[in-house]
Structures are given as C-alpha cells and as structure tokens.
C-alpha cells in the first residue's frame, strides 16, 4: 500500500519533468492556452460569482445575529466578513469547489482521450502528449488568482448588501469595519495560497486523467479520486502555508 502511494508520488513528479520537455510549437500552444483560459477560468466565473456573493451575505448575517452584546460595535460585521472572505473563504473554499468543477473537467477530458486512444495517437505522431495537454492548463491557472480576486470582492459586496439592506447595520458601520486593522499582508498571503492551489487544481486532476486505465466507468472513478486528492492536498497545503506565513 505504502509502496503504491510512493510510486504514485514519484510518477507525479516525473510527470512534471515530462510536461516541460519537448515543447509544442508556439503557434499551436498559443491557441491551446487561450482555449484553456476560456474553459478553466472564464467558464468558472459564473459559479464563483454566485457562490461568493451569497456566502459573503450569509457570513455577514450570521455575524450580525451573534452580536447580542450592545458593547460590541456593529463595525464587527464588516470586519468579520472581510477577514473570513479574504483569509479563508475565497482562496481555500472556492478552491475546494473548483477541485470539483475544474478538476473533474480536466480529469474527464484527459481520461476520455486516454480511453479513446487519442493520447496514443498523439504519442505515435511524435507529439509530447503531456506537454500538449497539461502545459496549457498550467499556464491558464496562472490567471486563477484573478478568479479569487473577484470572489473576494463579491464575497465582501454580498456581505455589505446583506448587512445593510437586511437591516443588520448601517452602511458606514460596515465600511468602517472593512477598514479596521486592515493587514495588507493578509491579501498577499491569500494570493500566495491561491497560486499554489491553482497549480494543484491543474496538475493533480491531469495526473489522474492521464495515467488512468480502463473504460468509461474508470473515467468517472478517476474524476472522483482526483477530486478527493486535490481537496485533501488543498486543505493540507492550506494548513502548512498558514503556519509558515501567519505565525
């Protein structure tokens, strides 16, 4: 069992070496990168915006409902929403959701190509299939922090709308709360995490799709396994980075 895991980890790192060897022609690669940006980044914006706006609103309402003590200022609603959304919700939980959305798309699209011998066809033609299929995805996820930036903004905005228009506090209180004890490094920390999560989101599902064996049923299984491992690694890396960067 342990040997199998170690062998898989070794294979994962060898995959990285292969991704960067024998590059595909730039004229072809350019088109592939734009296609991946469209599939992985642009197509994710809708669901990320929807979830961020409403979860931001819920965080704000729940904070407001727990403020029973009159000595605690209403500015805490904006402060708590900002901290929750920027530190954890946008970078980590949106990434776990993206492990399902983006990750299963990557695993199933590459896995289907494996099942239907399209990857063998690329290899037989002399194309480095890992570079052709995975490299453009890795470049596309460099824009992933942009998605999380939007998520941060909409999360806080959703919190504002819920707090002010739900009658839980005044607009000025919420905005004051957003500005209290603001640590610019927290945003840097969130983007450092996001960058690393983006790399995990592209590479782990690609690994599971590329090296899968079997038929259509196994494509589904590979997608599930890829989602589980990507989520587990996001949570573990989140813990390690928080320890390293915030303590």
């Amino acid at each position: 069992m342990l040997l199998r895991y170690l062998s898989q980890i070794g294979k994962y790192f060898l995959m990285w070496k292969e991704i960067f060897s024998k590059q595909t022609k730039w004229s072809v690669m350019r088109g592939l990168i734009f296609k991946e940006i469209d599939d992985l980044i642009i197509d994710s914006l809708g669901i990320v915006a929807f979830i961020s706006f409403f979860v931001g609103g819920v965080v704000s309402i729940q904070t407001a409902l727990n403020l029973n003590n009159p000595l605690i200022p209403k500015t805490l609603i904006g402060y708590a929403t900002r901290e929750s959304v920027i530190l954890e919700f946008a970078p980590t939980f949106i990434s776990v959701i993206m492990a399902g959305k983006m990750g299963s798309f990557i695993t199933s699209s590459i896995g289907s190509m494996r099942v239907t011998e399209q990857i063998d066809a690329l290899e037989v033609m002399g194309v480095n299939s890992l570079n052709y299929l995975v490299f453009p995805k890795l470049i596309a996820v460099l824009l992933y922090p942009f998605v999380i930036g939007i998520s941060m903004f909409l999360g806080v905005f959703g919190g504002y709308i819920a707090a002010v228009y739900g009658g839980f506090g005044a607009s000025s209180d919420f905005i004051d709360g957003l500005q209290i004890n603001f640590e610019p490094f927290h945003v840097t920390y969130a983007f450092i995490k996001t960058f690393i999560f983006g790399i995990l989101l592209a590479s782990i599902p690609a690994f599971h799709g590329y090296y899968m064996k079997g038929g259509a049923l196994e494509v589904g299984k590979a997608s599930t396994v890829a989602f589980v491992w990507t989520s587990v690694l996001i949570i573990l890396v989140n813990y390690i980075l928080t320890q390293l960067l915030l303590t």
Partner: peptide, 23 residues
C-alpha cells in the same frame, strides 16, 4: 535517443481501431 525516436515517429502513420480522431 528520445529526440531521434520522436523524429522517427513523425515518419509513422497509425490507424487506430476506434479511429482515435480528436473529438
């Protein structure tokens, strides 16, 4: 070597059982 193998592969045409066309 690996470059020569890739070069040789460009001289090969393959017809797969399921056609293996890019969807």
């Amino acid at each position: 070597n690996s470059d020569e193998k890739r070069e040789l592969r460009t001289e090969i045409g393959m017809l797969f059982q399921g056609s293996a066309l890019f969807d």
